[in-house]
Nucleic acid binder design. Structure first.
Ligand SMILES: [Mn+2]
Ligand SMILES: [Mn+2]
Ligand SMILES: [Zn+2]
Ligand SMILES: [Zn+2]
Lengths: 142, 142
DNA sequence: TGACAAATGCAACCGTGTTGCAATATCATA
DNA sequence: TATGATATTGCAACACGGTTGCATTTGTCA
């Protein structure tokens, strides 16, 4: 993990971007954290808990920046709120708790969605991706 | 279609609700329209095109009301915006155009998603539903 | 150390959706 | 048909997630 975070930092520097205090902290949050996707508001809170008060504009801009760099990815869990997680380069889906909005990643072994698409009438859309979200109640809320 | 709209109106009256000018127009929009889900803003525009200026609060409340009555259903197409369509009582999914936000319904024949769930680690969530959204470019935008 | 550009903070704004409350319209009943 | 109870509507103000312009600060490299 320490290697990965250093690699990410090196890549950023190589591309002419700066390693600010805030950016390094955000990288730490994403790399050290669990695999749960977090929202801009949650990230802001986590930074505050780390004694770093960051303006929300900066948080939004940094999330967009790290997404553009391919370090994190946007997760749409089905409520109208963007979340982000470390880019794991592996296709998977998400579960959302309808009561407390907790989100977890879920992986379907041998997901055949892509193959099933061939037999589907997609209304002349050119498909570039899909999102499968499950809804329900988490362990604490059920 | 004319029968269905009359049946819906009768049900509403039987349950003590009123058939206002606005409510009847909204029912007409949903029953006569294509099967494409529409947002509150789009509905407001369609009513305006029918020479009926409606306050947005009324639109939102009416959409929630008709959902609660089971006449229409909420559709989450993957952008952070609620859409609604006539309740067809049939399980299906949706495609979203990433450029113009057009939405269409798609049906996967013999959707096996529910069965695949048994072999999936759902993180102790109790699942009550799912949403599968495809993304891409519509016929006009591709 | 200094200059230049990247990053930040601030304030104001946007779109979607919600709430409290007063005014209005519907409809059963007289 | 007139009336009253209450369902519905409009208005204004608000909540929330997210964005934008611009001035200030900070990181980096020569
Ligand atoms: Mn994930
Ligand atoms: Mn549909
Ligand atoms: Zn929960
Ligand atoms: Zn399109």
């Amino acid at each position: 993990m320490i290697q990965q975070i250093l690699a990410a930092q090196a890549t950023l520097k190589d591309n002419g971007f700066r390693l600010t205090k805030i950016r390094k902290l955000i990288l730490e949050v994403f790399f050290s954290n669990t695999t749960v996707p977090i929202s801009a508001t949650e990230l802001k809170s986590q930074l505050f808990a780390l004694d770093t008060k960051v303006n929300k504009t900066t948080v939004y801009r940094e999330l967009e920046f790290l997404s553009a760099q391919g370090i994190i990815v946007e997760v749409n869990a089905g409520d109208g709120k963007k979340r982000y997680e470390l880019n794991c380069y592996c296709h998977h889906h998400h579960v959302l708790c309808l009561r407390c909005s907790a989100v977890e990643c879920v992986t379907i072994d041998n997901c055949t969605l892509e193959e099933q698409l061939n037999s589907v009438d997609l209304k002349n859309f050119k498909i570039t991706g899909h999102a499968l979200n499950f809804f329900g109640l988490c362990a604490q809320c059920r």
